[in-house]
Amino acid sequence: MMDFLAFALAFAGFSTIAMGMEGHGRQVFGRVPEEGRRRLLKLAGWVLLLLSLVPALAARGPSIGTVLWLSLLTAAGFIVGLMLSYRPRPLRVVGPALLALAVAVWALAGR
């Protein structure tokens, strides 16, 4: 559960950061988001990425938790990268949806 939550946070984080970039923002939205919005997206993305460390550490402890977190970042980044290359548009929805699902599951299951 916590692993999935960590992954969802990482995925949402990476996709948000990507949307805040000039080139990738255009891929996702069809046009480049304006400066302020981009900065906000990037900031939010970084916060999400850092947040994804929390469930990993909480569920797995410091050593393997960190390893898990880093490898989840790799997996999430890889999928975001693939989507940007081949299916960028849905990225707007997929990140938040995944995150909402993970949070819901987490809240319902207790942990």
Binding site: E22, G23, R26, L84, Y86, P88, R89
Partner: peptide, 8 residues
Amino acid sequence: DEGGDGPV
């Protein structure tokens, strides 16, 4: 290739 062409 859908969007890779943009001004990356």
